[in-house]
């Protein structure tokens, strides 16, 4: 494997990082699905999520997952727009939506994970 990046925005870095993040996502997804659906009860409740998300290790895992998935998804969307949308105005409009939407989703997701602290379970109405 011998990869040489050409200068400028040829899309080559995007192409390369799409593959790198893809490999990470396969591993993260397998862990995620195994924990969520294949072992245990398969039922997701506040209690089961909170018991994991209280630990900094799971917070790190979920943050990495969030960043990789958002980057990979939006970079993919970027290329699709690049291929099918040809009017400059539309391209700029959709690219702006991708950047803005990505920033909002990253903020929402990261805040959910970072600020999470388990609340008194006795206050939870079942």
């Amino acid at each position: 494997m011998n990869i040489k990046f050409v200068p400028g925005d040829s899309g080559m870095r995007r192409w390369f990082f799409q593959r790198i993040t893809g490999i990470f996502l396969v591993v993260l997804l397998l862990v995620h699905f195994t924990i969520m659906h294949f072992i245990g009860t398969g039922e997701t409740t506040y209690q089961t999520v909170a018991s994991r998300l209280a630990s900094p290790l799971w917070k790190t895992f979920d943050l990495a997952f969030l960043v990789f998935a958002l980057y990979h998804g939006l970079a993919g969307l970027w290329v699709v727009v690049d291929d099918y949308v040809h009017k400059d105005g539309w391209r700029i409009f959709i690219y702006s939506l991708i950047v803005l939407g990505g920033a909002l989703l990253l903020a929402l997701g990261a805040l959910t994970i970072i600020t999470f602290s388990p609340q008194m379970l006795t206050t939870v109405k079942m």
Binding site: Y46, V49, A50, L53, L108, G109, T112, F116, T123
Partner: peptide
């Protein structure tokens, strides 16, 4: 998942 700040709502 952003509903996690509200345990009852999340459940």
């Amino acid at each position: 998942i952003s509903n996690l700040n509200n345990p009852a709502g999340f459940n």
